[in-house]
Design a protein around this nucleic acid. Sequence first.
DNA 1: ATAATATCCTACAGAAAGGATAGGAATTAA
DNA 2: TTAATTCCTATCCTTTCTGTAGGATATTAT
Lengths: 139, 139
Amino acid sequence: MMVSSKGRYALQVMMDIAKNEGDGYVSVADISERQHLPLKYLEVIVGILNKGGMLSSLRGKNGGYRLNKAPDEYSISEILNLTEGSLAPVECVKGHTAGCENAATCMTLPLWIGLDRVIEDYLSNISLQDVVDGNIKDF
Amino acid sequence: MMVSSKGRYALQVMMDIAKNEGDGYVSVADISERQHLPLKYLEVIVGILNKGGMLSSLRGKNGGYRLNKAPDEYSISEILNLTEGSLAPVECVKGHTAGCENAATCMTLPLWIGLDRVIEDYLSNISLQDVVDGNIKDF
DNA sequence: ATAATATCCTACAGAAAGGATAGGAATTAA
DNA sequence: TTAATTCCTATCCTTTCTGTAGGATATTAT
């Protein structure tokens, strides 16, 4: 029941780019250095974010990555769902197909659907900008 | 970000005992058969529930397990926390110590604390009885 | 052109966690 | 005494996690 380092690093990457992209691109080497995260692993993770349409890239000198939209347009949910594959707490609530062959009689399914929903609700209402700004209410 | 089979099976075990304990004890063999779950694995899981104080046991013939309190006195949170070890989404919000050495400056910590809380809130407000009764609102 | 700087691609590898199984010791009821 | 049952804990196989490695490809500055 844990968010893996892949997802956590991806979030750090997105935050770092949000903070450091001026008009140019942010390189993975710079992110790696600032965030103290392994370069080669970040290359893999950034590749996922890029292929998933969250970033644009530019190769070569002065190249790197930049956000495709404003930081307040990214929800934490979409970032984590992309990098983690899914945030579903159990297999049977993945991909909104909701259930195995016993779904009709499964007494625990509603529980998992409800849990999935509170997680999704929470994370989809927090933006990248919110995290960068330290703007997370309550707690 | 998944609840493991250990936690899911533990929940099934608790539900099965809740349903099937009359005045006597429920054996693991019976649970295994009714729920179609591996006996030897269930023995391990039930051991955790027992040592954690959720069940009482009786050895020998006609032995087995029974609940220590009424089904509506168990929250799903306590069952899953016991068997999973923790439901915290990241290492640094385990055990209410909240944080690593960088906690003071970590921008993502509030996010994880908040996520932990919505999960905990949801699961602590649903009882074993609710699940057995199919009494989970919404969705 | 060329050199330097980046991304991009994908296979591999060690460590940790997940998901059981195995075998028997201890206890209890009939 | 015997059958049934919990109890204990070591082991094992598989999958996932967490990276690493090495190079191919593209871009820009000079």
